[in-house]
Amino acid sequence: MKNLKSIALALVVALGTLSASAQTKKVDVSKSTINWVGKKVTGQHEGTINLKEGALVFKGKKLKGGNFTVDMTTISATDVSGKSKAGLDGHLKADDFFGVEKYPTSKLVFKTIADKGNDVYTVTADLTIKDKTNPVTFDITVKGKTATTSFKVDRTKFGIEYNSGSIFSSIGDKAINDEFDLTVNLQF
């Protein structure tokens, strides 16, 4: 009985040490940025979108997890102004694209993380846009109180098919690339 109590106590201490060593660091959404680029046959557009909340999980200095919520209602083009900007922003928020009235947020949850060395990690995460979840894989660099990454997202995997050349072959120069680029700079 005494040995059983000793083993139980050792397990409690070990588990407490493991959970105590994991540290969650909230992302400062006011200092973090997400930039996007969407390309089409005749050019491209770029802009920003804001994080609603996010956190990275560390064990010691090693990245072990992360989860983020993006405020889709903040999607905004930065390469046009006036009526062109209002029209593009409105279209991106409409059902043809992100349908922000029905789907005001998107989520990214880290699932696996491989340490590549030199503060670089390969992450596979579940990305949810418009209630559709698909995996994405990207490298992220963590230095000091910043984390940066760039990756591509195939919008058609999330039901965003508007003017997709791979789906609508007859649209010619009105085709919009299926993939859009995200560049993320997190401050925590």
Results as ranks from 00 to 15, higher is better:
18 L>S: 05
19 S>R: 12
19 S>E: 02
21 S>F: 11
22 A>P: 11
22 A>Q: 05
23 Q>Y: 11
25 K>W: 01
25 K>P: 10
25 K>V: 12
25 K>F: 04
26 K>S: 12
27 V>R: 04
27 V>K: 00
28 D>I: 01
28 D>K: 04
29 V>D: 11
30 S>D: 13
30 S>Y: 02
32 S>H: 14
33 T>C: 09
34 I>H: 01
34 I>Y: 02
35 N>E: 13
36 W>E: 06
37 V>P: 05
37 V>W: 12
38 G>V: 14
38 G>C: 14
39 K>Y: 13
40 K>I: 15
42 T>S: 15
42 T>E: 11
42 T>D: 03
42 T>N: 13
44 Q>P: 14
44 Q>A: 10
45 H>G: 05
46 E>S: 15
46 E>Y: 03
46 E>L: 08
48 T>M: 09
49 I>R: 05
51 L>G: 04
53 E>I: 01
54 G>R: 06
55 A>I: 09
57 V>N: 12
58 F>S: 05
60 G>Q: 13
63 L>F: 08
64 K>V: 02
66 G>W: 00
66 G>P: 10
67 N>L: 07
67 N>Y: 06
68 F>P: 00
68 F>D: 03
70 V>T: 01
70 V>S: 05
71 D>P: 13
73 T>Y: 04
73 T>W: 02
74 T>I: 07
74 T>V: 03
74 T>G: 10
74 T>F: 05
77 A>T: 07
77 A>R: 05
78 T>G: 00
81 S>D: 09
82 G>N: 07
82 G>T: 08
83 K>L: 07
83 K>I: 02
84 S>K: 12
85 K>T: 00
85 K>V: 00
86 A>K: 15
89 D>R: 10
89 D>G: 07
90 G>T: 11
92 L>C: 07
92 L>P: 00
93 K>H: 04
93 K>A: 15
96 D>E: 03
96 D>A: 06
96 D>I: 09
97 F>M: 02
98 F>D: 00
98 F>S: 09
99 G>I: 03
102 K>R: 12
102 K>N: 15
103 Y>S: 03
104 P>V: 06
105 T>Y: 09
105 T>L: 06
107 K>M: 11
108 L>G: 02
108 L>M: 10
109 V>N: 09
112 T>H: 12
114 A>Q: 15
114 A>S: 14
114 A>V: 14
115 D>I: 07
116 K>L: 15
117 G>H: 04
118 N>E: 14
118 N>G: 05
118 N>A: 14
120 V>M: 02
120 V>A: 06
